[in-house]
Design a protein around this nucleic acid. Structure first.
Lengths: 165, 165
DNA sequence: CGAGTTAGTAACCTAAGCTTACCATAAAAA
DNA sequence: TTTTTATGGTAAGCTTAGGTTACTAACTCG
């Protein structure tokens, strides 16, 4: 609960210590992450649309960036992406319907369905990599390459560290 | 995760250049931000619940961390938070119903509604600041204080820079 | 004073994921 | 070889967090 410091406000209603509030208000980690990811998501969608992928949403890249060229199962991709297999399965259905991936049976496991890129899907993959690369360049130009790298590296470690805990 | 580029690169279907894909696949900014913010959100909720605020969701701190102690209007808080006033208005309704804030008419503007913390709300504010402080300490312990600071500072500049563009 | 702007609300929509429940197959145990 | 348990996947529905459109009431400025 509250930190038991002494100095307090004069009015009854203010009988709570507030020395630290303004400090805490600045750069709230939760809010920064939220806003940053909204910004990036918006930019990714814009970039994709600008390249003619009108039917794609940014989350579709979650599948793309988590399958191997040789093909990956739904569960594997989901694990890598850090989402449930149901969520990944839905992405797969959508991308399959749009012709970007095709789904093959796994010869070693009749339960598994292997996702792999079609020709169109590979083009999409390249384009989406390009979108991200352009965005990162733009961001680097704005806040500095070194700081961007620091963010990405730090975030990667953070995510990795926090997810096994 | 390796699965190098050496697969079946010779088939017709693979006639697209893929040299850069593996590189792009690592540490995707969009995905990192998304996962990191999910993690932090979850931790915030856990921390709040652990302190007895069972009825709160993490987004409620979006209001808390964007109003002044002297009171702020819905629109001001929304602007600071980077969300619409409708969204902030809803948060205000919820927090008012739960007794954490109270809403007063603005003497200078009959349209405006000023949000300010109740006694309980101030306690909540302190507790939520404490939650964040603890989390940040925990994160600093995991990835290092300096890297955490770099992330927060970098993100703050990123958000600021990107939002006016 | 009237035109346009701003604070706020209401109703509905969207995105992205999660939970619970279930089936079919595979792998481990008995 | 059965039985049991774990795993890949799907389905249906829920949750979170926010946005869009549309509107009212009040403010501001020429």
């Amino acid at each position: 609960m509250a930190q038991g410091k002494s100095g307090q406000g004069s009015r009854k209603d203010d009988a709570v210590e507030f020395g630290t509030i303004e400090a805490g208000r600045r750069r709230n980690m939760r809010q920064l992450l939220l806003r940053a990811s909204r910004i990036v998501n918006r930019h990714v969608v814009e970039g994709l649309h600008a390249r003619g992928y009108a039917d794609l949403r940014s989350t579709h890249t979650t599948l793309l960036s988590n399958i191997d060229l040789a093909g990956s199962t739904v569960t594997t991709a989901a694990d890598r992406a850090g989402i449930t297999k149901q969520a990944m399965g839905r992405l797969a259905t959508e991308l399959e319907g749009a012709g970007y991936i095709r789904v093959r049976a796994d010869p070693k496991d009749a339960r598994a369905r292997v996702l792999l890129l079609t020709r169109t899907g590979k083009k999409l993959m390249l384009d989406s990599l390009e979108v991200m690369a352009e965005l990162e360049q733009r961001y680097a130009g704005s806040i500095g390459q070194d700081r961007l790298v620091a963010i990405l590296g730090g975030l990667a470690d953070f995510v990795e560290g926090a997810e096994q805990a």
